[in-house]
């Protein structure tokens, strides 16, 4: 299971890296090349985002990648095919990230079965709080998949405990309010929040939203278990081409 994989890795590494891509951006071929570089650079696990037309929690960079991928023909079925290829080729855990409507339209139970069949390990669905996702939780459980829940700086202690009790694999702490892609100060201000998360949560902690360089990862080392790199790698693809991602990641820790 995902949690034991993470714990095992943490015996030899101070902090794990999880990266993210939007499937089909800038093209299917290039997004697979990006995955390959990420794996080569030693990334420990990956989020594969199925693009959605209304990505409410995403900022301009990922939003635009979603729209471009859809324009270029990303469909749920070819995203599953992409995930299947990635899982076969590379030996790290892959998760899906998408919005609830994608699962809902597919049929939540069918979606979970297909995920398991494909060899995915879990899913992050940012617009599905556990209160609305009972069927999802059951289907994920049945298929030995981890539903990853999110904690934010506005989450009260009691709710942190509740979310931790519903999640499996790890808990995703967003480092600040807002959408993906904005600036985050990885410094003293985060200290209390991360401590609070640690106290409330028994699972490994991933921290994301704004992680963009070696200093950020260093700050998180010892305070979290997984650093999540999201928009920054898409920015690098946009600026320097998809070949530049590997170098960037190798220099992160």
């Amino acid at each position: 299971m995902l949690e034991s994989y993470i714990k095992q890795r943490l015996q030899t590494k101070d902090i794990l890296l999880m990266t993210h891509i939007v499937i089909g951006y800038p093209s299917f071929k290039e997004s697979m090349q990006v995955v390959e570089q990420m794996v080569d650079a030693g990334v420990d696990m990956m989020e594969l985002q199925i693009p959605f037309s209304e990505p409410m929690a995403d900022g301009p960079v990922i939003l635009k990648a979603n729209q471009d991928a859809l324009k270029k023909g990303a469909r749920v079925n070819n995203c599953f095919k992409f995930a299947e290829d990635a899982v076969k080729k590379f030996k790290i855990p892959f998760l899906f990230m998408s919005y609830y409507n994608i699962l809902f339209k597919y049929g939540v139970e069918k979606f979970a079965e297909k995920m398991a069949e494909t060899g995915l390990k879990g899913a992050i669905v940012p617009d599905l709080p556990p209160e609305e996702g009972k069927d999802y939780a059951i289907s994920m459980g049945k298929n030995h998949l981890s539903p990853i829940y999110i904690i934010s700086p506005t989450t009260c202690d009691q709710r942190m405990t509740y979310l931790a009790s519903k999640g499996s694999g790890f808990i995703y702490c967003v480092a600040r309010k807002g959408v993906t892609g904005g600036q985050t100060e990885f410094s003293g201000g985060l200290e209390d929040y991360l401590k609070k998360c640690r106290r409330a949560v028994n699972l490994p902690l991933a921290v994301g939203f704004g992680v963009k360089n070696r200093a950020d990862v260093e700050y998180l080392t010892g305070r979290a278990d997984i650093a999540v790199i999201g928009s920054e790698t898409i920015r690098i693809v946009n600026r320097d081409g998809s070949g530049a991602v590997g170098e960037f990641l190798k220099n992160l820790r």
Binding site: M56, D127, P129, E131, E132, Y149, P153, T154, V174
Partner: peptide, 22 residues
């Protein structure tokens, strides 16, 4: 937050976590 705001099968509150308290 409790599951709420349903009209039959419609409605609900499919919120990103950061807005739950709001």
């Amino acid at each position: 937050m409790i599951k709420r705001g349903y009209y039959g099968n419609f409605g609900g509150a499919f919120l990103p976590e950061v807005l739950v308290a709001t």
